[in-house]
Design a protein around this nucleic acid. Structure first.
Lengths: 184, 184
DNA sequence: ACCTGAACACCGTTCAAGT
DNA sequence: ACCTGAACACCGTTCAAGT
């Protein structure tokens, strides 16, 4: 890559990190270009879609979450590992509002730049879920998509100001249902 | 109201019903004004906010749902009444995508035109919940806001194309948790 | 190669001017 | 009183023109 192109690429990425963190996944791309001091065409050249930009920013976090799933599986009981991982992923989405909405849209869209991340994150969760199910500590009638959907729904709850104060409690209710401990 | 004003009011309302049903609660107001063949100012004169327009359109449905809650309480066992009402409200939101997101935002906003509807709907659900709790067939650690939050989250799941095929199943999982039957 | 910024087609909201 | 539609400040996306 040419030196000036590399500089613009880095500049856009740095600004986008801040703006997405502040405004969520629906943040203004124009605003990002403006703050990065590049033309709109430059932003589009480097990142043809919003998803492409999000993907680069979130990739390492996704990889860490997927790796974390396997580490937890090694270290803890099946149900505790699943629960700990759910806490991790929710803590992550909590700082990136709307990201799981974008992920949900990318699950069925193979052409989306976020698709691969969705699939591997879903698979990481599905492995933990299957392990807990084999141990009899998770509902057997859930699959990877169900788990992803429930995670997304919980992330959505955390994003709503009216519900955020109760979101930790609702997390416990929903994960309780996943663990088959609805009466806990 | 002047005759021409009344005519415009009715026209806007009729068009808005269709457009909101087709495009969801975030539908373009400009599009509504255009299809109703009125100027933007006319739309704003009659409905100063998007919420005001939504409220008029949804009010009778909300009232029916609140009345339905009391009718169910008369007719059925506490847990069955609550479950049947949850089905009703989800069926309703299913046809009006995004409406519960708008409702969630209005819960903590007394100035919103949707606020009163939120409160009465929340109260209707809370009555059914309290009755089931008293009978020992619903988790005692949930309140009206929690129930509203879970309903909203389920409506959000139905609105996501990737999750919609599993939404009925996830409805069963979540309501199972409310009923304290996570292991069902 | 790569960049810029205007152009285009949208949006919500306001308001001067008309009847 | 009430209505209209242009104006303003945004947005995402594209593309001719520049270096």
């Amino acid at each position: 890559m040419r030196a000036d192109a590399q500089k613009n690429y880095d500049q856009i990425l740095g600004v986008a990190r801040e703006v997405f963190a502040a405004d969520g996944a629906e943040a203004s791309l124009r605003d990002i270009a403006r703050k990065a001091e590049v033309g709109m065409g430059t932003l589009y050249r480097h990142f043809p879609t919003r998803e492409a930009l999000l993907e680069v920013i979130l990739r390492e976090r996704f990889e860490a979450l997927a790796a974390g799933a396997d580490a937890l599986a090694e270290a803890q009981q099946p149900d505790q590992a699943l629960l700990a991982w759910l806490r991790e992923i929710i803590a992550f989405t909590h700082q990136h509002s709307g990201v799981l909405g974008a992920m949900a849209a990318a699950i069925d869209a193979p052409e989306s730049a976020l698709h691969a991340s969705c699939v591997s994150l879903k698979a990481a969760g599905a492995r933990l879920l299957a392990r807990a199910q084999a141990a009899g500590t998770a509902r057997p009638d859930l699959d990877g998509v169900d788990l992803f959907a429930l995670i997304s729904a919980m992330a959505w709850l955390y994003d709503q100001p009216a519900f955020a104060p109760r979101a930790d409690h609702l997390f416990a209710v929903i994960t309780g249902a996943v663990m088959g401990q609805g009466r806990a």
